[in-house]
């Protein structure tokens, strides 16, 4: 990010060069069409400029053949562009399996970021180079948009639901993070930076900012909010056991079923009466207003990592971390 004037944005992700290839191709294509049309217009207007008022131009009404031709050729070219753009979009839509998952919460006017191992950042995101990073994003208030020009990624961040985007950084360095969806007074100040580091630098950064894993923090909340009172593993349980719940098919009271994903678990915390699990009473109070979006993300991480038999005891203080894959 020098002070001199750039004319082309940096390429710092695997997607960037693919997007740029499409862009440059289209620039060449549309540029030549624009130049072609301009040259034709300039040529015709000069070549056929009015020299003599009495000169009568020929009566040309049109040409079905020509017009069909210049309807059909653009159509074919357009369809080609469509397919190229669509394939690119599709490849950018879903993250690879092994992606590092990072959570982002937008609010007027800042970005709050949580790493799986518990590190938190505001308006800054450290990521390792060469590894796919999947972001799960939500907003606490209005619609925001997470835009990293150097990665060519952008996604609207909506309140009340999770959206995803992903990237794989290719160049160490610092890159702009912009909010691209207008969100009020300080919209232009809702910016930050993405810090791409080599894997070893990233590890060093993680270690120096260790706060305990996200799942561990979720475990503390699980105890703090007394979730364990009902979601206990013992015979007095008044609510489903949550071990190995994540990603499973859950049968509901009304006969339908749902996959227990981020969205479902979030809804069950905020609006427990919405979708009741078959065989249980709708007794859970809502936690709307008591938990923040960040709390929910921590609880989510905890439930995701929870194996059968690991549900904390009701009397237990938050102590040792649960054994899970997210702990270093």
């Amino acid at each position: 990010m020098g002070t001199q004037m750039p004319l082309f944005p940096e390429q710092a992700s695997t997607a960037a060069s693919k997007v740029d290839t499409l862009f440059l191709f289209l620039l060449a294509l549309t540029g030549s069409v624009a130049i072609g049309v301009t040259v034709m217009i300039v040529f015709y207007t000069i070549r056929y400029r009015r020299r003599d008022d009495s000169l009568q131009p020929p009566r040309i009404m049109g040409s079905l053949r020509l017009e069909s031709l210049w309807s059909a050729i653009p159509l074919v070219i357009f369809l080609g562009i469509f397919i190229w753009g669509a394939k690119l979009y599709y490849s950018m839509a879903s993250a690879p399996e092994n992606a590092l998952e990072i959570y982002v919460v937008g609010k007027q006017w800042m970005w709050k970021i949580q790493h799986p191992e518990g590190q938190r950042e505001i308006n800054e995101l450290h990521v390792p180079m060469g590894r796919p990073v999947k972001l799960t994003l939500t907003s606490e208030d209005v619609i925001h948009d997470f835009f990293v020009p150097a990665f060519r990624t952008k996604v609207d961040v909506l309140p009340g639901r999770y959206v995803h985007t992903w990237f794989q950084a290719t160049q160490p360095g610092e890159y702009h993070l912009f909010c691209a969806q207008y969100c009020g007074t300080n919209h232009a100040g809702m910016i930050g930076k993405i810090v791409v580091q080599t894997p070893s630098d990233y590890q060093a950064w993680l270690n120096s900012h260790a706060e305990g894993s996200l799942a561990l923090q979720g475990r503390k909340l699980f105890l703090k909010f007394q979730c364990v009172t009902c979601h206990s593993a013992d015979s007095q349980a008044r609510a489903p056991v949550l071990g190995k719940l994540y990603g499973r098919q859950v049968h509901l009271q009304d006969g339908s079923s749902v996959v227990a994903d981020d969205q479902y678990i979030r809804e069950s915390i905020l609006k427990p009466e919405a979708r009741i699990v078959a065989g249980w009473q709708p007794i859970m109070p809502t936690f709307q207003g008591q938990v923040t979006e960040e709390d929910i993300l921590q609880l989510l991480a905890f439930i995701k990592a929870l194996e059968p038999g690991q549900t904390p005891e009701r009397t237990e203080e938050a102590t040792a971390p649960t054994k899970n894959s997210l702990t270093p």
């Binding site: 997007v19 499409l22 862009f23 562009i81 469509f82 190229w84 753009g85 669509a86 979009y89 952008k154």
Partner: peptide
């Protein structure tokens, strides 16, 4: 702009 993958950016 109508090219999906490019529109994102």
């Amino acid at each position: 702009l109508a090219a999906l993958g490019l529109n994102i950016h």
